[in-house]
């Protein structure tokens, strides 16, 4: 088994509007796969489809070879897929520490336990501290997530996504709105944290995309118009016309 995610002939309609049409996408195991495309192309919708946030109107979605279309988000997450959100989506009133810890709990097997003291679970404590160290938020551990700066919230968003140790990580514009130095730090972080895992990333910053990705898929109007290595994508005339052309100044 070498594919992590496989989408076949996936279609999604909102009412009568077909947002995703005949979408085919294959992401290999251990691959860093970037999805690019203009605003409103359906990148986030694709993420929502794969992660179970919305169900496809028709088509097949497989995770590690098993069909997952129609499963609930938590069922898909338990199968080892974790995603972040384009618009920061954290637990605003809880502290940074608690945010990460909640994301660690299911993966460490504590589920809905109401007979264990959460503060005396060494494995949970260790992993939470590790993740906080990774996302550089150890100093801010007791601050409610809602009071973090924008860049810090984006890092927390990544932290929550990777905390459960999922094998397939999907990040939706993790660096959007960050300054150059913040972006560099975030990319280094993403590179390190997804080592040995499958990564699907939506990103508008082309230097990030071409620096990070093993493969790139270009999504335009709900359809993948090209999929290949960075070189192939750079040289693809369809892509140049439909997407990269607009970006060049």
């Amino acid at each position: 088994m070498t594919t992590a995610i496989e989408m076949r002939a996936v279609e999604k309609k909102f009412g009568n509007v077909r947002i995703i049409q005949d979408l085919n996408l294959t992401v290999g195991k251990g691959e860093r796969h970037a999805i690019i495309g203009p605003n409103g192309a359906g990148k986030s919708t694709t993420f929502n489809l794969i992660s179970g946030h919305i169900t496809p109107t028709s088509g097949e979605i497989n995770l590690n070879g098993d069909p997952i279309a129609g499963l609930r988000p938590f069922e898909i997450n338990r199968r080892g897929l974790s995603r972040s959100f384009q618009v920061t989506n954290v637990f605003a009133k809880m502290t940074v520490w608690e945010n990460i810890r909640c994301a660690v709990l299911w993966a460490t097997g504590h589920r809905y336990a109401f007979w264990k003291n959460v503060d005396s679970l060494p494995e949970v404590r260790r992993r939470t501290a590790e993740i906080l160290e990774d996302i550089h938020l150890t100093e801010r551990r007791d601050v409610p997530a809602g009071l973090l700066t924008y860049a810090e919230q984006r890092e927390l968003e990544i932290g929550i996504t990777i905390a459960g140790g999922a094998n397939v990580i999907m990040l939706d514009e993790p660096t959007a709105g960050m300054s150059n130095t913040e972006t560099e730090r975030a990319v280094a972080l993403i590179r390190r944290l997804t080592e040995g895992r499958t990564l699907v990333i939506v990103e508008h910053d082309m230097s990030v995309v071409f620096g990070l990705a093993d493969r790139i898929s270009v999504l335009v109007y709900g359809n993948i118009i090209a999929s290949g290595t960075p070189e192939e994508i750079r040289g693809n005339p369809k892509v140049k016309e439909a997407y990269l052309g607009e970006e060049e100044h």
Binding site: S82, N89, W106, I160
Partner: peptide, 12 residues
């Protein structure tokens, strides 16, 4: 705080 996000960290 956020029932939506809870689903994406494994909980119903």
């Amino acid at each position: 705080d956020n029932p939506e996000r809870v689903q994406f960290i494994g909980y119903d």
